[in-house]
Write a protein that binds this DNA or RNA. Structure first.
Length: 385
DNA sequence: ATCTCCCGCCAGCCT
DNA sequence: AGGCTGGCGGGAGAT
């Protein structure tokens, strides 16, 4: 590998990942790989065990992902250990439902205290459907169960208190913050304060912010939000991108997330490969042989993950579709890109001809070979557009 | 030093 | 009883 003309980022990542890197284990990257794995025509049911095994992570992490994705309508829980894939097409309805419920909550804000039990049941159901829950009113039409969750919740039953703090509900209220206010950017501190209502003591704030980081990372990987800074304070904050997604950074062409369709029945690149080493390695405890294996595997995974991420988000954050781009996007995007892309094709071809990473894992080698074949097939098909 | 957020313990629910 | 679910916060990597 050392003598081959490596892509700079690959050489860089391979060198850096002789040690543990938490970036390769982020929820956002895991979410990207999760989407790459299941956003296909032939996917309907998703088993949590299957997802955990194929992505090489513990079940616990899959729960985090699916709870957030369910809140924005991308999938829906069918039963124990089982989810149904809805896809990106489920997002618009989920967002509309959130908007509707927020405005309803605002309208009824001063009327009366709702019957808690009934609301709870309704909320449970809505959580299971990923959208459209109703609740007591709070700031900005937020569900006050979450807003008040840190207040101790008085004599509420344990189960209810637990649900009030769920990642799913927090996700929905976080999203509502964006879609019901005019704020251009919201920092996680601000969000936590709002969502905590009057109960933002230091400990609750810290916990809530931690969860918001988890949520923000997943939503960022879906391009529903993007990380940015407050214009004046330069403090880290998030901006809502929503259904418009981002504009392509080079052409300015909008690439709405709503145009995502399920992937064709092809094996997706960037799947079955996240985070094979599930633990922070304690290198003091590893044998030399294990250290070598871990380093080799990490380097392979780094590159695969990077490319998988690019398939979804693109190197600069904009969408850059490869051979698996959704059909709906294909025509408009390729048409806009055509002129620019033509100029770059020869560069890509040169790079493709020269770039042959030597994966030590046979499955990854197979995957790369598949990717190259798919790329060639895609190039061939787009030459007729 | 502060921000970020992975990780896995373990309580509580479900089957 | 055993498995599933997911809240929670310690603590370590990143900046």
């Amino acid at each position: 590998m050392a003598s081959s003309p490596l892509h700079p980022s690959f050489a860089d990542s391979a060198c850096r990942h002789l040690a543990y890197s938490r970036k390769q284990k982020s929820l956002g990257l895991l979410c990207s790989n999760f989407v790459a794995l299941y956003n296909r025509d032939d996917v309907d049911a998703i088993g949590l065990d299957d997802a955990a095994r194929r992505l090489g992570v513990e079940r616990r992490r899959i729960y985090d992902i699916v709870n957030v994705l369910e809140s924005v309508g991308v999938l829906v829980r069918k039963g124990k250990n089982q989810y149904s894939w809805i896809g990106f097409s489920g997002i618009p309805k989920a967002l509309q439902d959130l908007k509707d419920s927020a405005s309803q909550e605002s309208l009824g804000q001063d009327v009366q205290d709702p019957p808690t039990k009934a609301l709870e049941e309704e909320e449970d159901e809505s959580i299971n459907q990923g959208t459209d829950f109703e609740g007591e009113k709070g700031t900005s039409g937020l569900d006050s169960a979450t807003v008040n969750s840190a207040a101790g919740s008085g004599a509420k039953p344990a189960l209810e208190q637990r649900r009030e703090k769920s990642l799913g509900l927090l996700t929905q209220n976080f999203v509502k913050l964006f879609i019901t206010t005019d704020a251009d950017t919201i920092s996680l501190d601000e969000a936590a304060k709002i969502l905590l209502g009057d109960a933002h003591d230091a400990v609750n704030m810290r916990t809530k912010v931690r969860r918001l980081y988890d949520i923000a990372n997943v939503l960022s990987s879906m391009n529903l939000i993007e990380k940015t800074h407050h214009a004046d304070t330069r403090k880290p904050a998030f901006r809502w991108l929503g259904l418009e997604g981002r504009q392509n950074p080079e052409t300015g062409a909008p690439v709405p997330i709503t145009t995502f369709a399920k992937q064709p029945r092809k094996r997706s690149f960037g799947t079955e490969l996240t985070n094979v080493e599930s633990k922070r390695p304690n290198f003091n405890l590893l044998s030399d042989e294990s250290k070598g294996r871990a380093a080799v595997l990490a380097a392979d995974l780094v590159e695969c993950n990077r490319m998988a991420q690019q398939l979804i988000q693109g190197p600069k954050g904009g969408f850059v579709f490869g051979p698996f781009q959704p059909v709906a996007v294909k025509r408009e995007y390729v048409a806009v890109q055509k002129g620019v892309e033509r100029e770059k094709v020869s560069d890509w071809e040169r790079m493709a001809a020269a770039f042959r990473p030597q994966y030590h894992n046979q499955a990854l080698s197979d995957l790369f070979t598949h990717f190259v074949e798919a790329w060639n097939s895609w190039r061939h098909s787009t030459s007729f557009l």
